[in-house]
Computed example of a mutant assay.
Amino acid sequence: MGETQFLSTKQGRRLAYHHTPGKGPTVVFLGGLKSDMEGTKAVFLEDWARKNGRAFLRFDYSGHGESSGAFTDGSIGDWAEDTAEAVGALTEGPLLPVGSSMGGWQALLLARAQPARVAGLVTIAAAPDFTEDGYWASFTDAQKRELEQEGHIELPSDYMEPYIITKRMIEDGRKQLVLRAPLDLPFPVRFLQGTADTAVSTSTAVKLLEHASGPDMHLRLVKDADHRFSDGPCLDLILQAIDEVDRAS
Results as ranks from 00 to 15, higher is better:
Gln5Val: 04
Gln5Ile: 03
Thr9Met: 10
Gly12Cys: 13
Arg14Pro: 12
Ala16Tyr: 07
His18Met: 04
Gly24Pro: 05
Gly24Leu: 09
Pro25Asn: 08
Pro25Trp: 05
Thr26Lys: 02
Val27Trp: 00
Gly31Arg: 12
Gly32Arg: 00
Lys34Val: 15
Ser35Met: 04
Asp36His: 10
Thr40Val: 14
Lys41Met: 03
Ala42Tyr: 02
Leu45Lys: 01
Leu45Ile: 14
Trp48Pro: 02
Lys51Asp: 08
Asn52Pro: 12
Phe56Gln: 03
Gly65Met: 05
Glu66Pro: 02
Ser68Phe: 10
Gly77Phe: 15
Thr83Asp: 02
Thr83Ser: 06
Ala84Asn: 08
Ala86Trp: 06
Val87Ser: 00
Gly88Phe: 09
Leu90Ala: 07
Glu92Thr: 03
Pro94Leu: 07
Gly99Trp: 00
Met102Lys: 03
Gly103Pro: 02
Leu110Gln: 05
Val118Thr: 11
Val118Asp: 03
Leu121Tyr: 06
Thr123Pro: 10
Ala127Phe: 09
Ala127Trp: 02
Ala127Pro: 00
Asp129Ile: 05
Ala137Leu: 15
Asp141Asn: 08
Leu147Ala: 04
Leu147Phe: 04
Glu150Ser: 11
Gly151His: 05
His152Cys: 04
Asp158Cys: 12
Met160Leu: 04
Pro162Ala: 11
Lys167Leu: 06
Met169Pro: 04
Asp172Gln: 07
Arg174Asp: 09
Lys175Gly: 14
Gln176Ser: 10
Leu179Gln: 00
Arg180Ile: 14
Arg180His: 13
Leu185Met: 13
Pro186Arg: 13
Pro188Met: 06
Thr195Tyr: 07
Thr195Leu: 08
Val200Pro: 01
Ser203Gly: 00
Ser213Val: 10
Ala225Gly: 12
Phe229Thr: 11
Gly232Asp: 08
Pro233Phe: 12
Leu235Asn: 02
Ala241Phe: 00
Val245Cys: 06
Val245Glu: 03
Asp246Glu: 11
Ala248Gly: 14
